[in-house]
Design a protein around this nucleic acid. Structure first.
Lengths: 120, 120
DNA sequence: CAGGATCCTTTACGATACTG
DNA sequence: CAGTATCGTAAAGGATCCTG
């Protein structure tokens, strides 16, 4: 009984560590959260629109990050047959499940500012 | 009235972006969450203990990350006058405010696994 | 318009050896 | 014990030019 409990708790802990590693691997980098945040906000954006809205990013980075996000099922990509071709990016339903994380991070970032400001 | 609303929402949006940038700057890297998680779990750990508990990290990285975290008020460092000197690291109260973020990320990491597993 | 190719700079990270 | 110094590699990020 005790043994089972220990094993379970150990497994839970390992699971958490692996889960955090997974998540960070997918979400790491300078731009992921900005892109996702932008897409959650304004569904269906074209490449150029994202390039403008995600402040400071370059075309290469945006392209690469979008591919990553698409590969991980967080963003969908639709090519419209116009000419010249336009492409629409959209957050997936699963991608939307990141909203709570982004909210928490934003909240904490604000709290951090207040804290540093108050204690300096 | 409309104008005020727009300005407010724009300011709020900017604030969020900056907050996320702040937070990610402080929390980015391969090890921050693991170290913080470990310290939240088991208050008062020495350098060597952390080196053992944070799986895979090297002394140089640990040292540098701890300095970062201390500088950002997330971790406190206490030198005990024993010989040879031992040092205790401890999460600060403010550092503990990261717990919700870590929880959300861990939750999401698990959900991600399930999602990918189910859709593949 | 949407991006790939190329080249370059800068960080991140890691192994090893060494010191108070 | 708790680090620092040094060196080296790999990955991230960016500027510019080019193409269907």
């Amino acid at each position: 009984m005790k043994k089972v409990a220990v094993i379970n708790s150990s497994e839970t802990c390992q699971t958490r560590i692996v889960a955090i590693k997974d998540a960070m691997e997918i979400l790491s980098g300078k731009w992921k959260f900005h892109i996702i945040g932008t897409l959650i906000h304004g569904e269906k954006l074209r490449f150029m629109e994202l390039l403008r809205e995600v402040d400071g990013i370059g075309a290469k980075m945006l392209s690469k990050e979008l591919q990553d996000l698409e590969m991980n099922h967080l963003v969908s990509r639709t090519v419209l047959n116009t000419k010249p071709a336009t492409v629409e990016y959209q957050i997936t339903d699963f991608g939307k499940s990141l909203a709570p994380i982004i909210d928490e991070i934003a909240k904490w970032g604000i709290a951090y500012r207040n804290f540093v400001y108050t204690n300096s």
